[in-house]
Amino acid sequence: MTKIIGNNDGENGRNETYKIGSRKKVPRSVTVKEVEQGKHSGVHIVKINGRKYVRDNPDPSKKDNVNRTKKR
């Protein structure tokens, strides 16, 4: 399964693009469409302020979240 990782590249850290496997900057709209088409497992769509975003399905692990904490 290919992991989806948010790039936190939008205003206030929103994900405007996602990294999916070897694809480094997949636009949010394309990622959402792929998830809605069932092309990615382990994730779902949430709508916040009228915008759709990809979120990881709940589990106890933080290391596989779409929005991972970046090491500094």
Rank of each mutant, 00 (worst) to 15 (best):
V32R: 09
I20E: 04
K33P: 00
D59H: 11
Q37P: 00
N49S: 13
R14F: 05
V43Q: 05
I45C: 04
N65P: 00
P60H: 10
N12W: 06
N15M: 05
H40N: 03
N8K: 14
G21H: 01
D64I: 01
V32I: 13
S29N: 13
K63R: 03
P60R: 07
D59M: 01
R68Y: 00
R28A: 07
V43H: 03
K71R: 14
E34N: 12
R23Q: 13
N49Q: 08
K3V: 03
Y18T: 02
R14G: 01
N57W: 06
K47M: 08
S22K: 05
K71G: 07
R55N: 07
R68K: 14
V54H: 03
K47G: 00
R72Y: 09
K33R: 15
K63A: 07
V54N: 02
H40Q: 04
S41G: 09
N12P: 00
G6C: 10
V54R: 00
K52M: 02
R23K: 13
I4M: 03
S29A: 14
K62A: 11
K52H: 02
V35Q: 01
K62Q: 08
N49L: 11
H40W: 15
G38H: 11
K33T: 05
Q37T: 00
P27H: 03
V66M: 04
E36H: 02
S61M: 08
S22F: 08
K47L: 06
K3H: 12
S41D: 15
K33G: 03
V46Q: 12
S29L: 08
G38I: 09
E36N: 10
V46S: 07
R28S: 03
N49Y: 10
N7C: 10
P60K: 12
H44S: 15
S29K: 15
I4P: 02
K62G: 00
N12A: 12
N57G: 04
D9M: 06
K3E: 14
K47P: 00
Y18H: 01
R68P: 00
K33Y: 07
N15V: 06
T69S: 09
K71A: 11
R51K: 15
N15Q: 06
S22W: 09
G13N: 12
I45K: 08
D9Q: 05
R14T: 13
K39Q: 13
S61D: 14
G42F: 11
N57L: 12
G21E: 01
G13Y: 08
I5L: 12
R14L: 13
N65K: 14
I45A: 09
K39L: 14
G21M: 02
S61G: 01
N49P: 01
P27E: 01
D56W: 02
T2R: 12
N15C: 15
K39D: 02
H44R: 15
M1P: 08
P58H: 08
P60V: 01
Q37R: 15
N65V: 02
V54A: 03
K24I: 05
D59Q: 00
G50H: 07
V35G: 01
D9A: 07
D9N: 15
K3A: 15
K33D: 09
N15Y: 04
N67L: 11
N7G: 05
M1D: 12
R28V: 02
V32A: 06
